[in-house]
């Protein structure tokens, strides 16, 4: 059974004649425990897909099914305990006036978790922060530590699907490695399904099994990471993208 099925998804912004489509007729299917990557250049609509799934964009059409349950205009409480999101910029995704403890306990309170104290301690251990960070404010944390807090927040409700919106692009490479390792560990520990957006093929290749290449709001090609490594792409755009990211290293 698949964790997430999206069919004929269209997302637009603006009204009337100014309506501009950010995503056009996108369909894909993510199996339980799979890691699916969305790749494309800026403005290709990859982040918009994640936001539409999360319910942050109201203007969409098509069907989205999570765990056999079709999604409506409004998301149910049960949806939020199943699907969570990690944002790109850890400097913008934490409330500047709230301590780590406050952030996590509010989330748990919203989901009706009992035993908040021990859960927070365990969650912080899970993301490799330890209890020393519990009462710190965001400005007392580094970028990598903030992103760990954001991951902890996403995990607090015990979701099965995590939407990752370029979770490492604002971080240094060495910190990026730590976060990617953490994501790999968490996935196996918590049986998570990932849907990850990135412009970095190396990052997507490290974490995902299958990727969709996007251009101008539509899927150009869906291919396995193994195929991508062998550079066996059918579409010329995908090949161009692959070549440029390999060239910039060599």
């Amino acid at each position: 059974m698949s964790a997430l099925t999206v069919s004929d998804l269209n997302v637009w912004f603006g009204v009337g004649a100014e309506r501009a489509y950010a995503v056009r007729d996108v369909s894909f299917d993510v199996a339980k425990g799979e890691s699916f990557g969305l790749v494309g250049e800026s403005g290709s609509g990859k982040s918009t897909i994640l936001r539409a799934i999360a319910g942050l964009v109201p203007t969409w059409s098509g069907t989205m099914v999570v765990d056999g349950e079709p999604l409506g205009r409004r998301r149910s409480k049960a949806f939020y305990s199943k699907v969570q999101m990690v944002f790109q910029d850890p400097y913008a995704s934490l409330h500047p006036r709230q301590t780590v403890d406050r952030v996590l306990s509010e989330v748990m309170h919203l989901h009706g978790v009992k035993d908040i104290n021990t859960r927070i301690a365990r969650l912080l251990d899970d993301v490799g922060l330890g209890s020393g960070f519990r009462f710190r404010y965001p400005h007392q944390l580094s970028g990598g530590q903030r992103q760990r807090v954001a991951i902890a927040r996403a995990l607090a409700s015990g979701p099965s699907i995590l939407l990752l919106d370029e979770p490492t692009s604002a971080l240094d490479v060495s910190v990026q490695a730590e976060i990617l390792n953490l994501l790999v560990d968490l996935r196996s520990e918590h049986d998570l399904t990932y849907i990850m957006v990135s412009h970095d093929l190396g990052v997507v290749g490290h974490l995902c099994e299958r990727i969709a290449v996007m251009q101008q709001g539509a899927f150009e090609e869906v291919l396995s990471v193994a195929d991508m490594r062998r550079l066996e792409a059918k579409s010329p755009y995908t090949r161009h993208l692959l070549e440029s990211s390999i060239k910039s290293i060599r």
């Binding site: 490479v173 060495s174 490695a177 390792n181 290749g205 490290h206």
Partner: peptide, 20 residues
């Protein structure tokens, strides 16, 4: 060396990335 090895490489995948 840490900087070099912590980058995920498209062509040479590794199970775990090296951490500084």
């Amino acid at each position: 060396l840490g900087l070099l090895n912590s980058v995920p490489d498209l062509e040479h995948p590794r199970e775990r990335l090296e951490v500084l």
